[in-house]
Amino acid sequence: MEFSFSVTGPPKVDLKDSYDVVVIGGGPSGLTAAIYTSRAQLSTLVVNKGAPGGLVATTEWIENYPGFPDGVAGAELGRAMQNQAQRFGTEFASGEPEEIHLAADPKVIRVAGQDIKARAVIIATGTTPKKLNVPGEREFYGRGVSYCATCDGPFFADKELLVVGAGSSGVQESGFLAKFASKITIVEFLPTIQAERILIERFKKTGKGSFLLNQEVLAIEGEETVTGVRVRDRDSNEEKLIPAGGVFIYVGLEPQTEAFADQLKLDQWGYIEVDSNLRTNVEGVWAAGDVVSGATRQIAAAVGSGTIAAIEVEHYLSSKS
């Protein structure tokens, strides 16, 4: 047996009244920004409602982030980034700000009932898995419907699973699910598989998987728990029920920007619009990572954009004081 032990996350019991920089979101972009600003001796608070490392923490294994020739567990990478920020003095609050006033100077962010002032804010709230919006999806959430293979995979030992979405995320996580499941069918709306080749080949090698393309998912069915998924072939219009003990959904991501929707300029999909230096339309507010309009949604890109935002903030604050 092998165990890992995550040391990240002891609580910060006492938050200060004000910080030079408040970063909202603790994924790779937010943590990178915090590493830079803390190391530049700007007092920095990261407010993060998700896991240390954001989405990375829910990814089982990462192979395309430079510096790890054999790949690295998502959980470990996320933790390492958080530890690195902590080491330079970044403080952490877990949860979601109750109120955010970006236009004010200083900016005010309410966390756990406490108003915190910030001279600059970096928004790095990333994205969240999209829902399919079909009957049964909500009803069976936690009873066979899941958006997190690393979390829930172990409950599906020797079960037949259905994965919705043949993009890189869906195929990659299916590879992980194959450790537990007896059989995996990946259902895709489009007539082609979108995932990277290397992922497809690896998935095929598990010998447990197959693809079903050009299918619309109509409903998730079950009794106590999921028993199957109803799909419609988009050519023949034929409907059928595929038996499955669980459904994992990977149909894309949507930005987490509701909290700022009325304060920042967003594009038509809700991503934050920025200039080439990642400045938003509000002075003293930057955005970084997946939440930025037009961003390349990869860890290395998020790390790069966190770096740019942080350095811009350093310049801004030193010119202000």
């Binding site: 165990f3 890992s4 032990f5 995550s6 040391v7 990240t8 996350g9 002891p10 609580p11 019991v13 896991a51 959980a75």
Partner: peptide, 14 residues
């Protein structure tokens, strides 16, 4: 183990 180790640490501090 895993993520729950951080829970234990935080609980000990509390």
């Amino acid at each position: 183990s895993g993520y729950e180790f951080s829970t234990l640490l935080a609980d000990i501090i509390d």
